[in-house]
Design a protein around this nucleic acid. Structure first.
Lengths: 307, 307
DNA sequence: CCCATATAGTTGACTTTAACAACTAAATAA
DNA sequence: TTATTTAGTTGTTAAAGTCAACTATATGGG
């Protein structure tokens, strides 16, 4: 996949989706209001109260056009403009009548969207919505105010964790399929490990997107020692403290579960992870060169004593 | 996820992507041609030769408007209209000058798309393009003329197979996480199985989308017997003969690898799979009730003797 | 405090797009 | 043959979009 393939794919999608958006604006066309009027009513309704320039910004419209639209909608009785704190601008809000129109427009748009969704099977719907959210997340970047939740994995997410890390470390570190095989086995082992009270896996959910993961289980041959494994954070969600939150959660859980010590194995080429372990109080115990995943690596054992 | 959540997510994406499309039309705005003219030139260029009514259909434009656009572009020397076989219509094609304009417009659009893509990391680009193709595939349905390729898995795809089947059988059969755990182990075992000449895994690639999968490896305790496992076809790609193609490939491979017999285990609730096995000559050997994955199941052993 | 500059909104002039309807000519089906 | 469709043209009108000039207010240095 070169960048020009990506460009071609993106442009193909734009052409395709332009038509879909056309379909979804059908409902608006059947309302007694013009498309631009409907868009303005919708935007004000969504924001509750706003100003004309905010609308211009949000809808990418000309100021002059917006001015006339606001007047027309005021004449129709759909919106009221009160003088704002800033005397240059007016605060715009929908009248009760405007609220009704807003609801009607919403209902029409919902119907249009529903018409596209109903022919799909449940998996198709999930896939569609997931893909849409993914595109938004990628193009808009992670919303700064998003909520981070650490939660158990949902069905299908173990496979996703394997897929994402296999691909990620292949791209970032050049590791081959040997690594994907290894982690498939590691996740299978985790799931098969006996006592649910001494093991746990968390998925980092940032604003609804899978942003990272980690798990902990008893070390082989030593049930007083916990083993932290498979810490990873999606590139798009790095720098938000998600890795740190995951490690902290493991430490908290391990303490509560009665472990005396946490150990982990990592590679020295994974610098950001190392910084997180250091920050959480882990100490480097041992290093060992090895050849794995098609690369020459420097494996590191880290440990944290829990008092 | 109820349908109204899906509707809300879809409408949020539409609003979001409307703005992205706006950004991507920037380049066209900076050309000396109006947006509608540019779209017509682009469409003719893409199709090489066409008629006005085809353009109306493709671009969702009014016939009258199209008529005038064609005249204007002819006057500008960008396109030539030759009388077609049907004397009511003209065959429209770009002149050499029109071709130049077409290239320029394409270059401008490419630049716009590139500006959105370059800030992304490689994984983000892959994810974006994957998500876009997924949306197209879901909303447009599988292209009838798509090519089916059976190929080895790429990096990250084993995880995807686990994720997809875990989710799919949860939705279709109500199976719980026990099943996802089982298949994680099964794929790990496959990868760990020794001789690459006696085992193989195929991904069904339909028009670039992952549409299904299957694998075969030696049966435990009997190296003359092959075990067919994990046949699955994505719901969106069913009815295209993909399941049959996968099973046929396994039979072909098993014969060539010197196996005497192929066995498989399935559940009687998976009716479409059973029909494929029957069609390929498999015979039901044994049935056995069991409780697995949170459901009461009727397991079936099937076998095919290879002469 | 004043002043240069920026911002919010209005208005006029103009172009482009969009939507409808009436029309001609050729093709097609009964 | 005739009625009906289909392809395209032309006229008319409304709406949308673009540009620039203008007023009123806000803001950030000196």
């Amino acid at each position: 996949m070169t960048i020009s393939d990506d460009i071609a794919a993106m442009r193909a999608f734009n052409r395709f989706y332009t038509r879909i958006i056309g379909l979804l604006e059908e409902g608006m066309h059947h309302s007694p209001y013009a498309l631009s009027e409907a868009r303005v009513v919708h935007e004000i309704g969504k924001r509750n109260a706003t100003t004309a320039s905010e609308l211009c910004e949000a809808l990418a419209m000309d100021r002059g056009q917006m001015s006339r639209l606001v007047w027309r909608l005021s004449d129709l009785g759909l919106l009221a403009s009160l003088p704002g704190a800033d005397k240059r601008s007016n605060t715009l809000a929908l009248t009760p009548q405007g609220d009704t129109v807003y609801s009607d427009l919403n209902a029409a748009s919902d119907t249009d969207a529903e018409n596209l969704l109903t022919p799909l099977d449940p998996l198709g719907r999930i896939d569609l919505v997931t893909a849409m959210r993914r595109i938004e997340a990628i193009l808009a970047g992670p919303a700064p105010g998003g909520t981070l939740t650490l939660r158990p994995p949902r069905i299908g997410e173990i496979g996703q964790l394997i897929a994402r890390q296999g691909l990620l470390y292949h791209l970032e570190q050049g590791w081959n399929r040997e690594f994907e095989l290894l982690i498939t086995r590691i996740y299978a082992e985790f799931d098969a490990a006996p006592d649910p009270a001494t093991k746990a896996l968390w998925v980092a959910d940032y604003a609804g997107e899978l942003a990272g993961s980690i798990f902990v289980l008893p070390a082989p041959d030593d049930e007083r020692t916990a083993q932290l494994r498979m810490l990873y954070v999606e590139p798009a969600f790095r720098g938000l403290g998600i890795g740190r939150a995951l490690v902290d959660e493991v430490v908290r859980f391990s303490r509560a579960a009665g472990y005396r010590r946490i150990i982990l194995w990592t590679q020295d080429c994974l610098a950001p992870a190392r910084r997180i372990y250091l920050g959480a109080g882990f100490e480097l115990i041992e290093e060992e060169k090895h050849h794995s995943f098609g690369a020459d690596l420097n494996g590191q054992y880290w440990a944290l004593d829990l008092q």
